[in-house]
């Protein structure tokens, strides 16, 4: 039984980082044991990895449905429940209701998208985390969850493919 370790490898650019991930795979480190940290929205495809699952689209759709229903309640339920006869005009009319339905559907969708980002990314989270500030200066970091026995060979392999440094990751206050 060997200890688990968290290594942090820093690469100067996207290309060597992508090679680094391939190298890790060859060493038997599965993709779900590696996380990529970057100051740029580099896509999973660039790194040769599977698309990261996200619940934000589902949450956004749910928010749109809730917004639509709320809009429907305001546009249809309130005039039916609290009717006011204005010059014999119909209590419910289609075209003006479209505006209310549209605004609340969009509000529901956009608000829930925003909330979805918070939920999926676990924001806000001020706990100490493994991170290096070089990331926001353009470096790409790989966080590798591995067994202690593999540490030396990972360090050696990643250094050979262009890692600037590979060291044990330490969680600290951001």
């Amino acid at each position: 039984m060997t200890d688990k370790k968290m290594l942090l490898a820093i690469f100067p650019d996207v290309n060597p980082a992508a090679v680094g991930i391939k190298t890790l795979r060859e060493l038997g480190i599965q993709d779900d044991h590696v996380d990529v940290i970057s100051g740029l929205p580099i896509t999973e495809a660039m790194m040769g990895r599977k698309k990261h699952p996200s619940h934000v689209p589902t949450i956004a759709f749910g928010g749109a449905v809730v917004g639509f229903v709320l809009g429907g309640l305001l546009a249809f339920w309130t005039p039916i429940s609290y009717p006011i006869n204005v010059g014999g005009q119909p209590i419910i009319s289609g075209p003006p209701s479209v505006v209310v339905l549209f605004e609340l559907t969009m509000l529901g969708m956009l608000l829930s998208t925003f909330v979805g980002v918070f939920l999926d990314s676990k924001f806000p989270n001020y706990e100490p985390k493994e991170y290096v500030t070089e990331v926001s200066d353009g470096k790409i970091a790989l966080l590798i969850d591995c067994l202690g026995d593999d540490e030396d060979k990972i360090i050696s392999a990643l250094t050979n493919v262009g890692a600037e440094s590979v060291r044990q990751a330490e969680a600290h206050q951001l």
Partner: peptide
């Protein structure tokens, strides 16, 4: 900035969620 950045590190997941949200917006 520590408070406002919400603990963002730039992980693959954080970027994926942000990217989708920004495109949808």
């Amino acid at each position: 900035y520590r408070v406002l950045a919400l603990g963002f590190r730039g992980t693959e997941g954080e970027w994926a969620h942000l990217r989708f949200a920004m495109n949808l917006f």
